[in-house]
């Protein structure tokens, strides 16, 4: 029997501690449901989208996850500037890192979908261009962090740039695409998916999907935070 007394690497299983991690189990369950139901459920035929409508369960949740992570990031950057607590900087940078990952995944899923529905991987679609620019801004944030060696200075300067980046993200991905025509479903001449979803099957999978993907994003983010804190544990002691 492996326990604390017989082995010092024994897992420390504590009911109370496990109870805190219920949402990770939920994330796994929801994503399993998304993967299985997302490919099997009967979906309505919407114009020329055909089976590619299933991308709704993978493409849109990436953006919701990305927005969640970037919001976490900017909140922690503001908190860093009020207290100058380096832990907040770790939270902010980790969230931005994982946010960029989800942004890239959202862009990729969208581009693959566009290849088959719009006929081109990279189009002049304002939403596609604007998100590419927003992602570039956040990648510049990561490069900026790499270029400064002093930890406190890096935290301060990158927190300021992060607020700047978030202030650009909202007009770029939320305001401008709504002012101009887009090829995206739901804007201008192409119909939205929600109005065509007469059986409610799309939404039945979509809501669990975006909850699951967002939880997964937050999970990866907490893992990265723990890793970064271990890296800098000499400073925090």
């Amino acid at each position: 029997m492996i326990s604390d007394k017989t082995c010092r690497f024994a897992p420390n299983i504590d009911d109370k501690k496990m109870a805190k991690h219920w949402w990770k189990a939920l994330a796994v369950l929801l994503l399993l449901f998304t993967l299985i139901a997302g490919f099997l459920v009967k979906i309505p035929a919407i114009e020329n989208n055909e089976q590619s409508t299933r991308n709704l369960f993978f493409h849109v949740p990436m953006w919701i996850s990305m927005y969640t992570l970037f919001t976490i990031s900017v909140v922690n950057s503001v908190l860093y500037l009020t207290k100058y607590d380096l832990k907040k900087d770790i939270l902010a940078s980790s969230a931005a890192n994982v946010g960029v990952l989800f942004g890239v995944m959202g862009f990729t899923t969208g581009s693959v979908w566009a290849t088959y529905t719009w006929g081109s991987t990279l189009t002049n679609d304002p939403k596609q261009i604007a998100t590419a620019v927003a992602l570039l801004i956040y990648m510049a944030y990561l490069v900026l962090r790499l270029s400064i060696h002093d930890i406190d200075k890096r935290a301060r300067v990158s927190a300021i740039y992060n607020i700047f980046a978030f202030a650009m993200l909202i007009p770029l991905t939320y305001i401008i695409p709504r002012m101009v025509d887009s090829l995206h479903p739901g804007s201008a001449s192409s119909p939205g998916f929600r109005s065509q979803d007469t059986d409610g099957t799309l939404m039945m999978v979509f809501y669990p999907a975006f909850t699951g993907w967002t939880l997964l994003g937050v999970w990866i983010y907490t893992l990265r935070v723990r890793y970064k804190r271990l890296e800098l544990k000499n400073i925090f002691k």
Binding site: L136, L144, V157, M168
Partner: peptide, 20 residues
């Protein structure tokens, strides 16, 4: 200027923002 007067950095930070 805070990041050691790095001119290349200004291009990296600035170009995505000035694109729109």
């Amino acid at each position: 200027a805070q990041a050691n007067q790095n001119a290349a950095l200004m291009a990296i930070m600035g170009f995505p923002i000035m694109m729109p």
